[in-house]
Design a protein around this nucleic acid. Structure first.
Lengths: 194, 194
DNA sequence: GTATGATTCATACAAACGTCCGAATTAAAA
DNA sequence: TTTTAATTCGGACGTTTGTATGAATCATAC
Protein backbone atom coordinates (compact mmCIF):
# COMPACT_ATOMS: atom_id res chain seq x y z
CA UNK A 1 0.00 0.00 0.00
CA UNK A 2 2.62 2.47 1.09
CA UNK A 3 5.23 3.01 -1.58
CA UNK A 4 8.06 3.86 0.67
CA UNK A 5 10.44 4.91 -2.07
CA UNK A 6 8.72 7.88 -3.69
CA UNK A 7 6.75 8.84 -0.61
CA UNK A 8 8.24 11.57 1.51
CA UNK A 9 8.66 10.42 5.05
CA UNK A 10 5.77 11.27 7.31
CA UNK A 11 7.86 13.34 9.67
CA UNK A 12 9.07 15.51 6.81
CA UNK A 13 5.56 16.05 5.55
CA UNK A 14 4.59 17.25 8.99
CA UNK A 15 7.56 19.58 9.10
CA UNK A 16 6.68 21.06 5.74
CA UNK A 17 3.06 21.50 6.77
CA UNK A 18 4.15 23.22 9.96
CA UNK A 19 6.24 25.68 8.00
CA UNK A 20 3.40 26.35 5.64
CA UNK A 21 0.90 26.96 8.43
CA UNK A 22 3.20 29.25 10.37
CA UNK A 23 4.00 31.24 7.25
CA UNK A 24 0.31 31.59 6.60
CA UNK A 25 -1.15 32.44 10.00
CA UNK A 26 1.80 33.08 12.29
CA UNK A 27 3.11 30.89 15.04
CA UNK A 28 0.54 32.14 17.50
CA UNK A 29 -2.39 31.08 15.34
CA UNK A 30 -1.04 27.89 13.91
CA UNK A 31 -2.53 25.06 15.94
CA UNK A 32 -1.37 21.48 15.90
CA UNK A 33 -4.69 20.58 14.30
CA UNK A 34 -4.11 23.04 11.51
CA UNK A 35 -0.73 21.51 10.85
CA UNK A 36 -2.03 17.95 11.00
CA UNK A 37 -4.78 18.77 8.51
CA UNK A 38 -2.35 20.52 6.20
CA UNK A 39 -0.09 17.47 6.31
CA UNK A 40 -3.01 15.11 5.76
CA UNK A 41 -2.19 13.36 8.98
CA UNK A 42 -4.00 12.61 12.17
CA UNK A 43 -3.35 14.86 15.15
CA UNK A 44 -1.59 12.33 17.34
CA UNK A 45 1.11 11.81 14.75
CA UNK A 46 2.63 15.13 15.66
CA UNK A 47 3.17 13.99 19.20
CA UNK A 48 4.52 10.69 17.98
CA UNK A 49 7.25 12.31 15.92
CA UNK A 50 7.99 15.51 17.81
CA UNK A 51 6.75 14.88 21.35
CA UNK A 52 5.15 18.27 21.77
CA UNK A 53 4.58 21.60 20.09
CA UNK A 54 7.85 23.09 21.16
CA UNK A 55 9.69 20.05 19.85
CA UNK A 56 8.08 20.52 16.46
CA UNK A 57 8.81 24.24 16.34
CA UNK A 58 12.43 23.67 17.29
CA UNK A 59 12.80 21.36 14.30
CA UNK A 60 11.11 23.95 12.10
CA UNK A 61 13.63 26.56 13.10
CA UNK A 62 16.55 24.17 12.70
CA UNK A 63 15.49 23.20 9.23
CA UNK A 64 14.85 26.74 8.04
CA UNK A 65 18.11 27.96 9.53
CA UNK A 66 20.29 25.57 7.64
CA UNK A 67 18.26 26.03 4.48
CA UNK A 68 18.63 29.81 4.44
CA UNK A 69 22.20 29.67 5.61
CA UNK A 70 23.30 27.62 2.65
CA UNK A 71 21.14 29.69 0.34
CA UNK A 72 22.74 32.90 1.54
CA UNK A 73 26.20 31.47 1.21
CA UNK A 74 25.43 30.59 -2.39
CA UNK A 75 24.26 34.13 -3.01
CA UNK A 76 27.40 35.56 -1.49
CA UNK A 77 29.58 33.47 -3.74
CA UNK A 78 28.13 35.25 -6.72
CA UNK A 79 29.96 38.28 -8.08
CA UNK A 80 33.60 39.13 -7.99
CA UNK A 81 33.91 42.42 -6.20
CA UNK A 82 32.49 43.24 -2.82
CA UNK A 83 30.23 45.71 -4.49
CA UNK A 84 28.77 42.97 -6.66
CA UNK A 85 28.31 40.69 -3.68
CA UNK A 86 26.46 43.38 -1.81
CA UNK A 87 24.24 43.88 -4.82
CA UNK A 88 23.57 40.16 -5.02
CA UNK A 89 22.54 40.08 -1.38
CA UNK A 90 20.17 43.02 -1.58
CA UNK A 91 18.65 41.62 -4.75
CA UNK A 92 18.13 38.36 -2.91
CA UNK A 93 16.16 40.16 -0.23
CA UNK A 94 14.20 42.09 -2.81
CA UNK A 95 13.35 38.96 -4.70
CA UNK A 96 12.03 37.27 -1.58
CA UNK A 97 10.03 40.34 -0.63
CA UNK A 98 8.51 40.45 -4.07
CA UNK A 99 7.90 36.79 -4.83
CA UNK A 100 7.63 35.12 -1.43
CA UNK A 101 6.86 37.69 1.23
CA UNK A 102 5.51 34.87 3.39
CA UNK A 103 9.06 33.59 3.70
CA UNK A 104 10.18 36.82 5.24
CA UNK A 105 7.13 36.97 7.45
CA UNK A 106 8.14 33.52 8.60
CA UNK A 107 11.62 34.65 9.61
CA UNK A 108 10.19 37.67 11.34
CA UNK A 109 7.49 35.73 13.11
CA UNK A 110 9.79 32.97 14.32
CA UNK A 111 12.28 35.53 15.55
CA UNK A 112 9.65 37.18 17.66
CA UNK A 113 8.49 33.82 18.95
CA UNK A 114 12.09 33.23 19.99
CA UNK A 115 11.80 36.19 22.35
CA UNK A 116 9.77 34.04 24.69
CA UNK A 117 11.44 30.66 24.41
CA UNK A 118 15.04 30.09 25.41
CA UNK A 119 15.76 27.07 23.22
CA UNK A 120 14.39 28.89 20.20
CA UNK A 121 16.21 32.07 21.07
CA UNK A 122 19.48 30.24 21.10
CA UNK A 123 18.81 28.81 17.66
CA UNK A 124 17.84 32.14 16.12
CA UNK A 125 20.71 33.92 17.80
CA UNK A 126 23.05 31.39 16.28
CA UNK A 127 21.45 31.84 12.89
CA UNK A 128 21.93 35.61 12.87
CA UNK A 129 25.45 35.15 14.11
CA UNK A 130 26.32 32.82 11.26
CA UNK A 131 24.73 35.02 8.63
CA UNK A 132 26.71 37.97 9.94
CA UNK A 133 29.86 35.88 9.75
CA UNK A 134 29.14 35.07 6.14
CA UNK A 135 28.72 38.75 5.33
CA UNK A 136 31.96 39.50 7.09
CA UNK A 137 33.76 36.74 5.26
CA UNK A 138 32.53 37.50 1.75
CA UNK A 139 32.00 41.23 1.77
CA UNK A 140 34.04 42.82 4.50
CA UNK A 141 37.16 40.75 4.49
CA UNK A 142 40.17 42.88 3.69
CA UNK A 143 43.25 44.34 5.25
CA UNK A 144 40.97 45.00 8.19
CA UNK A 145 41.36 41.45 9.26
CA UNK A 146 44.92 42.21 10.28
CA UNK A 147 44.24 45.03 12.67
CA UNK A 148 42.56 43.82 15.82
CA UNK A 149 40.61 47.02 16.35
CA UNK A 150 39.35 47.12 12.81
CA UNK A 151 38.52 43.45 13.00
CA UNK A 152 36.07 44.24 15.74
CA UNK A 153 34.71 47.09 13.64
CA UNK A 154 34.25 44.76 10.71
CA UNK A 155 32.19 42.45 12.88
CA UNK A 156 30.00 45.35 13.95
CA UNK A 157 29.48 46.46 10.37
CA UNK A 158 28.38 43.00 9.30
CA UNK A 159 25.79 43.00 12.06
CA UNK A 160 24.53 46.40 11.01
CA UNK A 161 24.43 45.46 7.37
CA UNK A 162 22.35 42.42 8.23
CA UNK A 163 20.28 44.54 10.56
CA UNK A 164 19.65 47.11 7.84
CA UNK A 165 18.40 44.43 5.47
CA UNK A 166 16.18 42.81 8.05
CA UNK A 167 14.95 46.05 9.56
CA UNK A 168 14.13 47.55 6.20
CA UNK A 169 12.44 44.35 5.06
CA UNK A 170 10.24 44.44 8.13
CA UNK A 171 9.08 47.87 7.15
CA UNK A 172 8.37 46.59 3.68
CA UNK A 173 6.23 43.62 4.70
CA UNK A 174 4.28 45.84 7.07
CA UNK A 175 3.82 48.63 4.56
CA UNK A 176 0.62 49.14 2.69
CA UNK A 177 2.49 50.68 -0.22
CA UNK A 178 5.28 48.15 -0.59
CA UNK A 179 6.49 49.00 -4.08
CA UNK A 180 8.14 52.30 -3.24
CA UNK A 181 9.70 50.98 -0.07
CA UNK A 182 11.22 47.98 -1.78
CA UNK A 183 13.39 50.25 -3.86
CA UNK A 184 14.81 51.68 -0.67
CA UNK A 185 16.83 48.53 -0.28
CA UNK A 186 18.90 49.60 -3.25
CA UNK A 187 20.31 52.47 -1.25
CA UNK A 188 22.00 49.90 0.97
CA UNK A 189 24.47 49.26 -1.80
CA UNK A 190 25.37 52.91 -1.90
CA UNK A 191 25.62 53.29 1.85
CA UNK A 192 27.77 50.27 2.51
CA UNK A 193 30.05 50.71 -0.49
CA UNK A 194 33.37 52.20 0.39
CA UNK B 1 -15.73 55.49 48.13
CA UNK B 2 -14.10 56.10 44.82
CA UNK B 3 -11.81 59.11 44.92
CA UNK B 4 -12.11 60.07 41.35
CA UNK B 5 -9.46 62.76 41.42
CA UNK B 6 -6.29 60.93 42.32
CA UNK B 7 -7.44 57.60 40.98
CA UNK B 8 -6.32 56.75 37.50
CA UNK B 9 -9.26 55.96 35.34
CA UNK B 10 -10.07 52.30 35.13
CA UNK B 11 -9.61 52.15 31.38
CA UNK B 12 -6.10 53.56 31.66
CA UNK B 13 -5.15 51.05 34.33
CA UNK B 14 -6.26 48.29 32.03
CA UNK B 15 -4.24 49.74 29.18
CA UNK B 16 -1.14 49.93 31.32
CA UNK B 17 -1.63 46.40 32.54
CA UNK B 18 -2.02 45.19 28.99
CA UNK B 19 1.25 46.80 27.99
CA UNK B 20 2.98 45.29 30.96
CA UNK B 21 1.67 41.81 30.26
CA UNK B 22 2.53 41.91 26.57
CA UNK B 23 6.02 43.17 27.33
CA UNK B 24 6.44 40.34 29.79
CA UNK B 25 5.04 37.33 27.96
CA UNK B 26 4.41 38.42 24.40
CA UNK B 27 1.11 39.13 22.73
CA UNK B 28 0.51 35.46 22.02
CA UNK B 29 0.73 34.47 25.66
CA UNK B 30 -0.92 37.45 27.27
CA UNK B 31 -4.49 36.45 28.02
CA UNK B 32 -7.28 38.78 28.98
CA UNK B 33 -7.32 37.13 32.38
CA UNK B 34 -3.64 37.90 32.85
CA UNK B 35 -4.27 41.51 32.00
CA UNK B 36 -7.31 41.78 34.24
CA UNK B 37 -5.37 40.33 37.18
CA UNK B 38 -2.45 42.66 36.53
CA UNK B 39 -4.84 45.61 36.50
CA UNK B 40 -6.63 44.41 39.63
CA UNK B 41 -9.87 44.35 37.74
CA UNK B 42 -12.46 41.76 36.98
CA UNK B 43 -12.34 40.09 33.58
CA UNK B 44 -15.54 41.49 32.17
CA UNK B 45 -14.29 45.05 32.58
CA UNK B 46 -11.99 44.57 29.61
CA UNK B 47 -14.96 43.88 27.41
CA UNK B 48 -16.82 46.78 28.91
CA UNK B 49 -14.13 49.28 27.98
CA UNK B 50 -12.61 47.80 24.84
CA UNK B 51 -15.28 45.49 23.45
CA UNK B 52 -12.91 42.70 22.59
CA UNK B 53 -9.28 41.67 22.59
CA UNK B 54 -8.46 43.25 19.28
CA UNK B 55 -10.01 46.50 20.43
CA UNK B 56 -7.76 46.53 23.47
CA UNK B 57 -4.65 45.72 21.48
CA UNK B 58 -5.41 48.44 18.98
CA UNK B 59 -5.49 50.96 21.80
CA UNK B 60 -2.23 49.58 23.14
CA UNK B 61 -0.54 50.16 19.80
CA UNK B 62 -2.04 53.62 19.42
CA UNK B 63 -0.86 54.68 22.84
CA UNK B 64 2.65 53.32 22.44
CA UNK B 65 2.97 54.81 18.98
CA UNK B 66 2.31 58.34 20.04
CA UNK B 67 4.40 57.94 23.16
CA UNK B 68 7.49 56.77 21.30
CA UNK B 69 6.92 59.19 18.48
CA UNK B 70 7.09 62.21 20.74
CA UNK B 71 9.96 60.68 22.66
CA UNK B 72 11.95 60.20 19.48
CA UNK B 73 11.23 63.70 18.31
CA UNK B 74 12.58 65.00 21.59
CA UNK B 75 15.73 62.97 21.12
CA UNK B 76 16.21 64.26 17.61
CA UNK B 77 15.98 67.83 18.79
CA UNK B 78 19.08 67.30 20.86
CA UNK B 79 22.41 68.21 19.35
CA UNK B 80 23.32 70.76 16.76
CA UNK B 81 24.94 68.92 13.92
CA UNK B 82 23.51 65.95 12.10
CA UNK B 83 26.34 63.91 13.48
CA UNK B 84 25.31 64.77 17.01
CA UNK B 85 21.70 63.97 16.27
CA UNK B 86 22.65 60.59 14.89
CA UNK B 87 24.66 59.95 18.03
CA UNK B 88 21.74 60.94 20.21
CA UNK B 89 19.47 58.52 18.38
CA UNK B 90 21.80 55.56 18.62
CA UNK B 91 22.40 56.30 22.27
CA UNK B 92 18.66 56.33 22.77
CA UNK B 93 18.40 52.84 21.33
CA UNK B 94 21.36 51.65 23.37
CA UNK B 95 19.87 53.04 26.53
CA UNK B 96 16.61 51.23 25.94
CA UNK B 97 18.38 48.00 25.12
CA UNK B 98 20.38 48.26 28.28
CA UNK B 99 17.84 49.54 30.79
CA UNK B 100 14.48 48.46 29.39
CA UNK B 101 14.95 45.65 26.89
CA UNK B 102 11.29 44.71 27.45
CA UNK B 103 10.33 47.94 25.74
CA UNK B 104 12.11 46.89 22.61
CA UNK B 105 10.74 43.38 22.83
CA UNK B 106 7.35 45.02 22.98
CA UNK B 107 7.89 46.95 19.77
CA UNK B 108 9.23 43.86 18.08
CA UNK B 109 6.44 41.64 19.33
CA UNK B 110 3.66 44.03 18.39
CA UNK B 111 5.17 44.50 14.95
CA UNK B 112 5.08 40.79 14.34
CA UNK B 113 1.54 40.60 15.63
CA UNK B 114 0.69 43.26 13.08
CA UNK B 115 1.69 40.84 10.35
CA UNK B 116 -1.57 38.99 10.91
CA UNK B 117 -4.02 41.79 11.64
CA UNK B 118 -4.82 44.45 9.08
CA UNK B 119 -5.93 47.19 11.49
CA UNK B 120 -2.78 46.72 13.53
CA UNK B 121 -0.61 46.58 10.44
CA UNK B 122 -1.88 49.92 9.33
CA UNK B 123 -1.05 51.46 12.69
CA UNK B 124 2.46 50.06 12.82
CA UNK B 125 3.10 50.93 9.20
CA UNK B 126 2.12 54.47 9.99
CA UNK B 127 4.37 54.52 13.02
CA UNK B 128 7.44 53.46 11.07
CA UNK B 129 6.58 55.93 8.37
CA UNK B 130 6.43 58.79 10.83
CA UNK B 131 9.65 57.83 12.57
CA UNK B 132 11.39 57.69 9.21
CA UNK B 133 10.03 61.12 8.39
CA UNK B 134 11.45 62.47 11.62
CA UNK B 135 14.86 61.06 10.79
CA UNK B 136 14.65 62.60 7.36
CA UNK B 137 13.63 65.93 8.78
CA UNK B 138 16.20 66.20 11.53
CA UNK B 139 19.18 64.31 10.17
CA UNK B 140 19.01 64.13 6.41
CA UNK B 141 17.55 67.48 5.53
CA UNK B 142 19.97 69.41 3.38
CA UNK B 143 20.46 70.66 -0.13
CA UNK B 144 19.09 67.25 -1.08
CA UNK B 145 15.62 68.47 -0.44
CA UNK B 146 15.88 70.62 -3.55
CA UNK B 147 16.71 67.92 -6.03
CA UNK B 148 13.76 65.63 -6.65
CA UNK B 149 15.88 62.58 -7.31
CA UNK B 150 17.97 63.06 -4.21
CA UNK B 151 14.84 63.73 -2.24
CA UNK B 152 13.70 60.23 -3.00
CA UNK B 153 17.13 58.95 -2.05
CA UNK B 154 16.93 60.78 1.23
CA UNK B 155 13.65 59.08 1.98
CA UNK B 156 15.22 55.70 1.28
CA UNK B 157 18.18 56.42 3.52
CA UNK B 158 15.93 57.37 6.41
CA UNK B 159 14.14 54.05 6.07
CA UNK B 160 17.41 52.17 6.01
CA UNK B 161 18.79 54.07 8.96
CA UNK B 162 15.69 53.20 10.95
CA UNK B 163 15.91 49.67 9.64
CA UNK B 164 19.52 49.37 10.71
CA UNK B 165 18.67 50.46 14.23
CA UNK B 166 15.71 48.15 14.52
CA UNK B 167 17.35 45.21 12.77
CA UNK B 168 20.47 45.46 14.86
CA UNK B 169 18.45 45.87 18.04
CA UNK B 170 16.56 42.70 17.22
CA UNK B 171 19.84 40.85 17.03
CA UNK B 172 20.79 42.32 20.39
CA UNK B 173 17.66 41.29 22.26
CA UNK B 174 17.93 37.80 20.81
CA UNK B 175 21.63 37.46 21.54
CA UNK B 176 22.92 35.50 24.47
CA UNK B 177 25.98 37.71 24.66
CA UNK B 178 24.36 41.11 24.40
CA UNK B 179 27.16 43.30 25.67
CA UNK B 180 29.44 42.97 22.69
CA UNK B 181 26.62 43.36 20.20
CA UNK B 182 25.31 46.50 21.80
CA UNK B 183 28.52 48.29 20.92
CA UNK B 184 27.88 47.45 17.30
CA UNK B 185 25.26 50.14 17.23
CA UNK B 186 28.00 52.72 17.57
CA UNK B 187 29.23 51.84 14.11
CA UNK B 188 25.97 53.21 12.75
CA UNK B 189 27.24 56.69 13.46
CA UNK B 190 30.31 56.04 11.37
CA UNK B 191 28.43 54.43 8.50
CA UNK B 192 25.76 57.04 8.14
CA UNK B 193 28.03 60.03 8.66
CA UNK B 194 28.97 61.80 5.49
C1' DG C 1 2.54 -18.38 9.60
C1' DT C 2 3.62 -16.26 13.73
C1' DA C 3 5.62 -13.06 16.63
C1' DT C 4 7.57 -8.56 17.37
C1' DG C 5 8.18 -3.83 16.94
C1' DA C 6 7.04 0.35 14.58
C1' DT C 7 3.60 3.22 12.96
C1' DT C 8 -1.16 4.97 12.29
C1' DC C 9 -5.52 6.00 13.94
C1' DA C 10 -9.72 7.53 16.69
C1' DT C 11 -10.97 9.33 20.73
C1' DA C 12 -10.90 11.38 25.32
C1' DC C 13 -9.65 14.76 28.68
C1' DA C 14 -8.70 18.64 31.40
C1' DA C 15 -7.31 23.27 31.03
C1' DA C 16 -7.48 27.78 29.08
C1' DC C 17 -9.46 30.82 26.07
C1' DG C 18 -12.61 34.99 24.44
C1' DT C 19 -17.10 36.42 24.91
C1' DC C 20 -21.48 37.30 26.92
C1' DC C 21 -25.18 38.24 30.37
C1' DG C 22 -27.85 39.55 34.49
C1' DA C 23 -27.62 41.20 38.91
C1' DA C 24 -25.46 44.32 42.25
C1' DT C 25 -23.47 48.62 43.17
C1' DT C 26 -22.35 53.32 42.55
C1' DA C 27 -22.84 58.02 40.72
C1' DA C 28 -25.62 61.63 38.67
C1' DA C 29 -30.02 63.83 37.62
C1' DA C 30 -34.62 65.03 38.68
C1' DT D 1 -35.79 61.19 47.91
C1' DT D 2 -36.65 59.04 43.76
C1' DT D 3 -35.16 57.92 39.14
C1' DT D 4 -32.02 57.02 35.83
C1' DA D 5 -27.78 55.92 33.83
C1' DA D 6 -23.07 54.29 34.30
C1' DT D 7 -20.09 51.15 36.20
C1' DT D 8 -18.57 46.94 38.62
C1' DC D 9 -18.97 42.30 39.58
C1' DG D 10 -19.36 37.15 39.49
C1' DG D 11 -20.31 33.46 36.86
C1' DA D 12 -21.52 30.88 32.88
C1' DC D 13 -21.27 29.57 27.83
C1' DG D 14 -19.35 27.13 23.97
C1' DT D 15 -14.77 26.54 21.59
C1' DT D 16 -10.35 25.51 20.98
C1' DT D 17 -6.16 24.19 22.73
C1' DG D 18 -2.12 20.72 23.73
C1' DT D 19 -1.50 16.29 25.40
C1' DA D 20 -2.25 11.41 26.49
C1' DT D 21 -3.97 6.66 25.79
C1' DG D 22 -5.23 2.25 23.83
C1' DA D 23 -6.53 -0.23 20.03
C1' DA D 24 -5.78 -1.18 15.06
C1' DT D 25 -2.72 -1.68 11.21
C1' DC D 26 1.48 -2.29 8.99
C1' DA D 27 6.25 -4.09 8.01
C1' DT D 28 9.87 -7.14 9.29
C1' DA D 29 12.28 -11.16 11.07
C1' DC D 30 12.12 -15.57 12.73
Amino acid sequence: MKTKANEVSQSQRILKAAIKCIAKKGYANASLRDIADEAGVVLSQLNYYYNNKQGLFVEVVKRLSQQYLSEIENILQQGETKREKTAALTEYFQKILKDNPELFKLLFDLSSMALWSDPLRELIDNFFQEVAMLIEKYILQSKWQEDKRLKKYSRAVSRIMLGAMIGTSIQVVLAVDKEELMDSLNAIQVIFAK
